[in-house]
Amino acid sequence: SSIIADLSISTSPAIWHQCTHPTSSTLLITPRKPSPVAKMAAMFSQNPVMNGPNYSFSDGPKTNNGELREHRFNPYTDNGGSTLGIAGADFTIMAGDTRHTSGYSINSRMAPKVFKVGGTTASQDDATIVLSVCGFAADGSALRDQLDTICKIYRYRHGKPMTLNACAKRLSTILYQKRFFPYYVTAMLGGLDDYEREQCRAGGAAGSLIMPFLDNQVNFKNQYVPGSGTGHDLKERERHPLSRPQVETIIKDAFDGAVERHIEVGDALQMMIITKDGIEESILPMKQD
């Protein structure tokens, strides 16, 4: 017996010619061009309900009421939490809370969402890049594992760690590869580079609570030099990179504010401080209610 199959999806009515024979059986699957005969088949159909030559292979599973049954499985969920990154002159701090929620329940009070990537070992001691992922945690850890592997392979092939710029570009292609079944995460990369991408960015559940505060306190938006003029003549307060203690204070205050006003944020604040000497990690307690 032989099987010849055309696997292309055909919009014209595909007809299966099945010939039964005492000694051999042959199954030919050929998308048939809409021909007068095929149209006639619809006319002669013995099953008018199906409105065609009775080969509706696209018919889906039905409920008991005869309605089409939809997929009930939802592959996504939201595990809450918030992340925040601020770049200083010669350092970057990536922060995130450690609460992991599902609905109104707390799954874990200590589930970090800020990770070192691209180190040579599992302990990530010599990593230079920090990734934060916030949203659907399973996608987040899958994304982290994939990016980490890619960074490790890059180091193996090129004999040097990946630059933040290269890593960001690669991260965007990884995310776009799943354009039609996306990773449901806000991903941020932090590190040191020659470029300045963004001064600061907040993401996740309380991103909208934190970001306006950062606009004001990091980029001095809507702040003016006192007595510099009236109305539109006011001179904007000059921007300058913040010092590390200032940034740490702003991050702590931003999260304390978010914990107070958002139920999915809390438990502990994890901070990764990236400097040219390496990455320091700190965990500070926050309200658990």
Partner: peptide, 19 residues
């Protein structure tokens, strides 16, 4: 009939259950 060749006849077996 050529347009429904060699399959069980609907009037003998009932309409084909595509599911």
């Amino acid at each position: 009939r050529p347009q429904a060749w060699g399959r069980p006849r609907d009037d003998v077996y009932g309409a084909y259950d595509a599911s």
